[in-house]
Design a protein around this nucleic acid. Sequence first.
DNA 1: TTCATTGCAAAGTTTTTGCATCTTT
DNA 2: AAAGATGCAAAAACTTTGCAATGAA
Lengths: 128, 128
Amino acid sequence: MVKIGQRQTRQRSIIHDIIMESDRPLTIANLVTLAQKRQAKIGQATVYRTVNALIEAKEIQAVQMPGGEALYEKAHLHHHHHFKCNNCGKVYDLPGCPDGIDLKKFLPPRFSLTAHEFTFYGTCAECA
Amino acid sequence: MVKIGQRQTRQRSIIHDIIMESDRPLTIANLVTLAQKRQAKIGQATVYRTVNALIEAKEIQAVQMPGGEALYEKAHLHHHHHFKCNNCGKVYDLPGCPDGIDLKKFLPPRFSLTAHEFTFYGTCAECA
DNA sequence: TTCATTGCAAAGTTTTTGCATCTTT
DNA sequence: AAAGATGCAAAAACTTTGCAATGAA
């Protein structure tokens, strides 16, 4: 069990577990629905507060999609990127990073790089 | 003068020009401020409606940043990506695409790719 | 018992919509 | 004159906050 904030509560534990057990990033709406299956009365505010606390604690991270929707996933140990299916709308993790990128040539002079995030679009295997 | 919708209006022309003349993507707030400098009474709703119409018309495109903010820029003829400076917060266009990416190896089996969007973070030349 | 956390409802934010009025054609 | 576009304000959608009640330690 993970400690978030000062006290261990059933609500936080449930929300934490749902994210850790998911193989894909989830929206707030997803989390509310899934959490309420495990315990009827979980307020939206609790989900928002817990998600923000988990981000603060670096347990999870936000994935911002074009269009504006935010998804949340476990803070991965390994660098990875995302793929959104244009057909079913699901967002998948793509482990690793494409090989052979020549960033030196790509960046303007005197720009330095600390991070990057790639988002890919297309059709997933399920929808193919 | 560009035609958006059925009629040419001063408001649409102003908003269109601001985006076309900018070398960086702009937020809705940026657009409202800049537009009101050229003509006092431009309602926010008009900016939103015009931006949506311009996107629909493929004249401009949205750039979604992590954290949730959306920026708008001219629909480029050439494929490009974005760089956000962690220091000043400005978003820059990076023309072109990094060379030598091996996407075949990167995508899972039976996933097909139609588009991609890269976002880079770091320090820009101005802030270096 | 104490005080962090919760649920609910109220208050913020941001974006969209309804409608009377104004403008383009 | 007809109909699209505007500005304003109301509404909708999403997130945060205040507060009394609950529950973990």
